[in-house]
């Protein structure tokens, strides 16, 4: 499953970068994440509760940041396991300053799904991806506006 998108965030790349490197904030804005614990430098244990339509399950696994380019972006590797299948996503995140002190956040990557998720989910998977993306940016914006909201 391809994961790609971009969004203009209403703050500077510096602020966005800081937020992206702040695990507390990440835990709040990444849809579904309930806990994010640091296990090593740039490595985290992540637990997610995904409630989306017919799916209601808990996922757990790890999250690693690689290829960190200060202020510009990094590559995120997410491994999540559950009873209905596992997901392994690698997503490259890039930040680019745009006019009016705004930031364009672009991400591009791929998620590898297995088990039931892969087998019975194809019909709706692009909907899942679109929906997660939408939620992620909504949460991000709310966070920027200081609401600290969660999807």
């Amino acid at each position: 499953m391809d994961l790609a998108g971009s969004h203009i965030l209403n703050t500077t790349p510096e602020v966005v970068w800081a937020m992206l490197m702040d695990t507390d904030i990440l835990a709040r804005i990444v849809p579904g994440i309930t806990t994010l614990e640091k296990t090593a430098e740039n490595e985290y244990k992540a637990v997610a509760q995904v409630k989306m339509g017919p799916v209601n399950g808990s996922f757990s696994g790890g999250l690693t940041m690689q290829d960190i380019r200060e202020g510009e972006g990094y590559t995120l590797n997410v491994q999540q396991n559950s009873k209905i299948g596992n997901a392994n996503a690698t997503v490259t995140i890039d930040l680019k300053p745009v006019e009016n002190n705004q930031t364009e956040l672009t991400f591009d990557g791929e998620a590898k799904l297995s088990g039931l998720l892969a087998r019975t989910g194809n019909r709706v998977m692009s909907g899942v991806a679109n929906s997660l993306t939408k939620q992620f940016f909504e949460n991000f914006e709310e966070e920027i506006e200081g609401k600290g909201g969660k999807g």
């Binding site: 590898k112 799904l113 297995s114 892969a118 087998r119 019975t120 194809n122 019909r123």
Partner: peptide, 14 residues
């Protein structure tokens, strides 16, 4: 099959 060997239309819904 997708590139990872998952059968993506493995049901009568697909």
């Amino acid at each position: 099959y997708d590139d990872y060997g998952q059968l993506v239309n493995g049901s009568y819904m697909d």
